[in-house]
Amino acid sequence: MTDHIVAEVSEIEDGERILVELKGREVGVFYLDGEYYAFANWCAHQGGPWCEGTLTGTFEGEFNRETLETRLNWVKEGKILNCPWHGWEYDIKTGTCLSRRSVKLPSYPVRVEDGKIIVTL
């Protein structure tokens, strides 16, 4: 495991990302709500460059069995990363695929030291 300085904190605005290559692997580094996240740029579906996808919200369903009311709520705006190839949805905070809960994309530890963003890989 090696520490890699990937950027200065000033280089990634909130809600933005950078793509870097570490040890021959493409890695996406995201800054969202004051936290950093780093993932392999590889979708579990067909290997698409998911770190290059859009960040959007998504629908979640809610059902009240007593009233039989079904509600579809648009949630997590800006926190769902969609693979650009087929739109597989992932929760950016956990890397978990929304349609296949057992699928979680590989993530790497990220920390900030002296204004530098460091990914360990």
Binding site: T58, F59, E60, G61, L72, H86, W88, E89, S99
Partner: peptide, 15 residues
């Protein structure tokens, strides 16, 4: 299709 368009069938929490 669910994996691609899950947001169209958002009640589902499993495949």
């Amino acid at each position: 299709v669910h994996s691609i368009r899950r947001f169209d069938a958002p009640m589902l929490t499993k495949t």
